[in-house]
């Protein structure tokens, strides 16, 4: 059952704005840095709430089509973990050497989705999108 408003994203957004607008200008020294990090963390979590689910399902689809299996039965975390374990072991063992282009393309798009959450301003991310 959905929770009442404000939503999780709205709550976090409110706290983030409080940190940036009210708390930050009053701080000095090492606390300034810590407060910025704290506000950044709240914005990461907001983006994760908004984008995390679709990133997970895109990653799952990508893994399934790359590896040609469904993954271990269970929730999406279990499936993702089993397929990622396979992918990592296969790369490590050289079994995917001849599918490098497909592997790179899957890994790149998964990383782009991670960066859209973790740090969408990162220069390497913008470059990978062709910006």
């Amino acid at each position: 059952m959905p929770q009442d408003r404000a939503s999780a994203e709205e709550l976090l957004g409110g706290v983030e704005a409080f940190l940036r607008k009210d708390v930050l200008p009053q701080l000095s020294g090492a606390s300034i840095y810590k407060c910025r990090v704290a506000a950044n963390i709240l914005s990461i979590v907001q983006r994760e709430l908004a984008l995390g689910e679709s990133a997970d399902s895109a990653e799952l689809q990508g893994l399934q089509s790359l590896l040609g299996r469904e993954g271990e039965e269970g929730d999406s975390a279990t499936q993702l973990d089993s397929l990622n374990a396979d992918l990592c072991a296969s790369i490590r063992g050289g079994e995917l050497d001849d599918q490098r282009t497909a592997v790179m393309s899957h890994v790149r798009s998964t990383l782009q989705d991670k960066l859209a959450i973790a740090n969408p301003r990162y220069a390497g991310y913008r470059e990978s999108l062709g910006d």
């Binding site: 840095y33 810590k34 990090v37 704290a38 950044n40 963390i41 990461i44 790179m104 890994v107 790149r108 990383l111 782009q112 991670k114 960066l115 973790a118 740090n119 990162y122 390497g124 991310y125 470059e127 990978s128």
Partner: peptide, 23 residues
């Protein structure tokens, strides 16, 4: 240190750069 904890989310910055470097 919660600041250290947040650095874990920066591993992927290096990963996207690595894809480019090894290509």
């Amino acid at each position: 240190s919660f600041e250290h904890m947040a650095i874990g989310r920066r591993a992927c910055e290096n990963e996207i750069d690595l894809l480019k470097l090894i290509e």
